[in-house]
Structures are given as C-alpha cells and as structure tokens.
C-alpha cells in the first residue's frame, strides 16, 4: 500500500513540477494546487497506514482501540489543507488581477519590477 501511494505521490509531484515550470501563471497555479495535494498525501503516508480502524475512542473506553489509525497526520493534513486553500485562493485572485492589470499571463513579459532595459551601473561620478 505504501509503495502504491509513494508512486502516486511521485506522480503528483512530477505533474506539479512540470506545470510549475511553465511560463503561464494559470498553469503554475494548477501546479501549486497539485503540489499541495501531493504533499498532503505524503503526510498521510509517512504517518503509517493502518487498515480500517478509525482513531475514535469507543464509548465507555479511555483509550482508542489497538491498531487504530494515527490521528496526528490527519490533523496536520487538515491544517495544511486550510492553509493551502487560503494561499491558493489568494494567488488565484492575484494571478487574475495581474492578468487584468499587466495584460500578461506569461512571466516572460512580466518585467515591470525588473525592467529589461535597466540602466547600466554608474560608471562615472
């Protein structure tokens, strides 16, 4: 099971890397989204996989059942999902605004902050 999931994570991360290497911002955004999901899956997998016992303490007990799943990665993933969601929606709005204002979905033509025709360094006093 771990091996299968590891392969899946690798697939996610390579797809994300491919998309993020693109010059188009919308593809980079999709890459970030896939990357986030891949990482969440990774956290889930490194927390050890156990079959089918939810980490819920049964009524009347004080400890969870033996062999139940590790609840911590689930808490971590929940946090990471929330944060990733917030950042992704911010970047989405940012990319949209940049597209509207700068008329560029291509990072190569996005050169206002670092103009291509920058002045040469001062050579004389």
């Amino acid at each position: 099971m771990e091996v299968a999931l590891a392969g899946l994570i690798g697939l996610f991360l390579s797809a994300a890397a491919y998309l993020m290497l693109s010059k188009a911002i919308i593809r980079m955004l999709l890459g970030v989204a896939i990357l986030g999901n891949g990482v969440n899956l990774l956290i889930f997998t490194v927390g050890r996989l156990t079959p089918e016992v939810p980490p819920i303490v049964p009524a009347g007990e004080t400890l969870p059942l033996a062999g139940s799943a590790n609840p911590l990665p689930q808490a971590l993933i929940l946090t990471a999902i929330v944060i990733g969601f917030a950042l992704l929606s911010f970047l989405l709005v940012l990319g949209y605004r940049a597209y509207q204002e700068l008329d560029a979905d291509n990072t190569d033509t996005m050169r206002i902050a670092e103009p291509e025709a920058a002045p040469r360094p001062p050579l004389s006093y």
Binding site: I25, V32, L94, L102, M110, I112, A113
Partner: peptide
C-alpha cells in the same frame, strides 16, 4: 500598483514553494 502585482507574483510563488 502594477509594479506591486508583478513583484507579488514572483514573491508569492517562490515563497509558497519554499514553505511547501
């Protein structure tokens, strides 16, 4: 301002990548 959006795109993506 336009220049800020430009800077923010680069700042945003690379820093998000780092935290990921």
């Amino acid at each position: 301002r336009k220049v800020q959006l430009d800077g923010a795109v680069k700042y945003g993506f690379l820093n998000l990548l780092a935290t990921t």
